[in-house]
Design a binder for these strands. Sequence first.
DNA 1: CTCTCCTCCTTAATCAATTAAGACCTTAAT
DNA 2: ATTAAGGTCTTAATTGATTAAGGAGGAGAG
Lengths: 349, 349
Amino acid sequence: MARVTLQTIADRLGVSRATVSYAFSRPDQLSDGLRRRILEVADELGYAGPNPTARSLRLGRAGALGLLFSETLAYAFADPYALGFFRGLATAAEEAGVGLLILPLPHGDRRSDTVRDAVVDAFCVVSLPDGHPALAEVLARKLPVVVVDEPYVPGHPFVGIDEPAAGAAAAAHVLGLGHRRVAVAMVGLHDDGHTGWADRARQEGAVFAAMRARRGGYQAACERAGLDWDDVPCYEVARNSREAGRKAGHALLRLDPRPTAILTNTDVLALGVLDAAADLDLDVPGELSVVGFSDSAAEEAGLTTIRQAKQEIGEAAGRLLLSGAAARPERRLFPYELIVRASTAPPAS
Amino acid sequence: MARVTLQTIADRLGVSRATVSYAFSRPDQLSDGLRRRILEVADELGYAGPNPTARSLRLGRAGALGLLFSETLAYAFADPYALGFFRGLATAAEEAGVGLLILPLPHGDRRSDTVRDAVVDAFCVVSLPDGHPALAEVLARKLPVVVVDEPYVPGHPFVGIDEPAAGAAAAAHVLGLGHRRVAVAMVGLHDDGHTGWADRARQEGAVFAAMRARRGGYQAACERAGLDWDDVPCYEVARNSREAGRKAGHALLRLDPRPTAILTNTDVLALGVLDAAADLDLDVPGELSVVGFSDSAAEEAGLTTIRQAKQEIGEAAGRLLLSGAAARPERRLFPYELIVRASTAPPAS
DNA sequence: CTCTCCTCCTTAATCAATTAAGACCTTAAT
DNA sequence: ATTAAGGTCTTAATTGATTAAGGAGGAGAG
């Protein structure tokens, strides 16, 4: 059975294709009788309705928002921060009645043309490392683009938080409590799978702009408090997982003198650091203070963290794209908030 | 500045449109020199690459999978079971290099044509109530469709678990422990927002087929154990939330005689029932046994539950659609597993 | 009777590509 | 010299719709 198109129906009834099209899209242009007959024949022939692709081509709109995320989709759907963001974005999409097309990044060697072939009206790019090839592909499409969290793309709107300030707030909190032996555990500095100590060059050359900025905030606050940043040990892990956090925790807690406070750039990592502390029978916050970031998995663990309005950020990104306001390179920074819970306290004197 | 198409470039260079197309899609059909010149001019004119919609129309494939979920997207991204499923589906999509188009259901009165207009190659329908209009719209598209969990759509492949058997296993567990005063808290029977006692008619006429089947399993097991189902109180809530579970818990625990075991058809609900038990200072599992369903939020709470292979189910659904095997109405039932944790014990004698 | 206005439908341009088949020219083999 | 084979580009059909503009016919007004 060949494909049924508008033309098939038109031929069958001896009317023009336009007439059949009107039967579907503009009932007022047709007499009721004919319209009914057309719909009847359409049904009889098993017509699937006006082809959305053809429609989309003619009308010049896709009815979908493209979403690009740095990690594999399987990871994204497990990351609390990403999920909060997706929720917000999905809400905006839902309100506008458009779909959300989640695109896989070409992973490994298999090259795929998902970005090039994505039938969308706009792109939302989330948390891509500097220089990631997918970003170039997105920009080549010349569609509206909004970037969330990272990287900074000149000429395109940006939504996120004031990362340096938020990082500084996290650091200032423990410094204000009196800590002087501060250490840092970070994920997402580079894309090369490295796990280990991060020297100054690696820190400052981090390809994830938000993480780089966050770290800059740590440093600024520490220096304002009179610490020498070179005395602040930084451990870097490749994946944002609890297990990786634990590893970083052990590395940092083995140091002599042992840090009394550890800053982490994600909550998941912080949970791992807490695991490490538990492994070593260290009392938190008595012997060790830990600060997370994002308030994504922090509540039950009683973790002090920086809360980001993930859902609002997602909604804002969506609305920016859907309102057509993405032409102006607006820069929307959302407020963050230091949430103090039971994982931080003054150091033992 | 007008839109740049293949034709624009062709005109500029005095070659045919086909030639330009080949420059992008089939380099071997062209001399290197010309190809280079074409790409140069394309760049110069700001050509965004072959229009994906036109491409899609001509090639007859969309490169995307449509996903339809019963709830609002904001809810879906917060539901642990849905997320596990999404993860699996996304993994399959990622492997095949196709996108995942998440479609909003027409919510409330605003009618939107997202299903009709979705540029996709196939649909995955998850957990829709019987008779939901969106399902009809999906079927009208005459594309491959796979249904997950519910409803049962004759003629289309189905992926899920053996719900009656799983429900029976949950019930048989507490019955085997010796419980006789069993009660049930359920969500997702109907779509009408009702919260309160569910009589036999409401139970059996439930529009969510999986939930209906699950409940049938409870009943069968109870009757096999010699209980009269009419003696088993059933409380129904409208939303799958912890708060709703707590409400159901209070309603059930106020009964005299008080149930010694409560079966719930989701983990989230079970957590709420545990909250209610805590409110009443009831010892779990000493004075009350609670069983969840899905193993989605159960681990930390020490909840006995039925584990469903959510991620595998998602992957299977995706692969079914992507392999083109969705033509046969295959019915794939995945194994479930009773996970016994600390929320169930024999009743106090 | 003529003019105007509606209603209902058709004509034809348009959206932006892909690709089989053919034309034309050069080179190599017989 | 003839034929075959390649390489490079063009022609034209095709994908499946939307919609402005126009035409035919009937109804009502003057």
